[in-house]
Amino acid sequence: MTRSTRERIIDEALRLFAERGYSATSVAEIEAAAGLSPGAGGLYRHFKSKYEVLAAAMHEHAARTRSQVAESLAQLDTMETASTALDDRLAHLCRAGLAKVREESELTRVFFRDLSQFPELVAVVREGLLQPMFDAITTWFRAQPEYARADLDWNGIGAVLGGAVVHYRLFQETVGESPGHTEKDQFVAAWVRLAVGLVPSPAPVS
């Protein structure tokens, strides 16, 4: 698919912000990366400033995440709970979360390094990208029949299990290797085992 000039500017700016930092990236560098003549002002035909490019990237990624989370939940809902083992459903959920965090690796690097100076954009990412991921996990668990009798703090559990997924990918991004030298399949298997442990024991037969 051919990207528009505006899309190229956003994509290349986010890549450069992730690699070099927001302050260290110039408008001319963004223009060159987007295929425009550096220093000729091509960026300003689409955005008023470098900050506006950053804000557009945050808003558009957040909007895309909300849409993707809704689609992912719909796809998970189509899995027949009667014929698909809980372990398989959990593994699918965990892998989907890992894939999403990896997809947003550039944005998360910018978020943790540069956005403290832009609290209004922190709120955009928090409410549009991070919280929907945690909310999706909580919603999914509550919808599974195996957990129907579990009297648990699902918001807390969603924070723990969702946080593990986010941390796994962020650790790889920042350190360059997996936490505890754990391969992805090992991580998913451990995550599933912990989640299965939340299933309440069968009620005693009277």
Results as ranks from 00 to 15, higher is better:
E183P: 00
L86A: 06
L93W: 09
S178H: 06
T78E: 14
Y168D: 09
T78C: 05
E104G: 03
E104H: 15
L198I: 10
S178N: 11
R6F: 00
V53C: 11
S26K: 11
G128A: 05
F47V: 02
L170K: 02
G97I: 10
L198M: 13
L121I: 03
V27G: 14
K50G: 04
A28S: 14
L98M: 02
H167M: 13
L170W: 10
G163K: 04
H46N: 07
G128N: 10
Q75L: 14
Q186L: 00
P204M: 08
I10A: 13
S67K: 13
L198W: 12
E103K: 10
L161Y: 14
D185C: 10
F47L: 01
F141I: 02
Y147T: 00
R142Q: 15
M133Y: 07
V110E: 02
S83K: 13
G42C: 09
E177Q: 15
S23N: 11
Q186G: 14
L90F: 01
I157P: 01
G39W: 04
L36Y: 01
L36G: 04
T5Y: 05
Q68C: 02
D114E: 10
A143I: 00
A148F: 06
R64L: 09
Q144R: 12
D153C: 05
T84P: 01
R169M: 03
E29Q: 14
Q75Y: 03
G163E: 05
R193Y: 08
V27F: 12
R109E: 12
S116C: 04
R126I: 05
T174D: 09
W140M: 10
M133D: 10
L98C: 04
G180N: 11
E104L: 14
V160L: 02
A40Q: 13
T81Y: 06
K50W: 11
A164I: 00
Y51N: 04
P119A: 11
V175T: 12
A164L: 14
Y44C: 02
R126S: 08
Q131H: 07
T139R: 14
Y147D: 01
S105D: 14
V125K: 02
Y51C: 04
Q172R: 15
D153S: 05
G35A: 08
I30L: 10
E12T: 15
L76V: 05
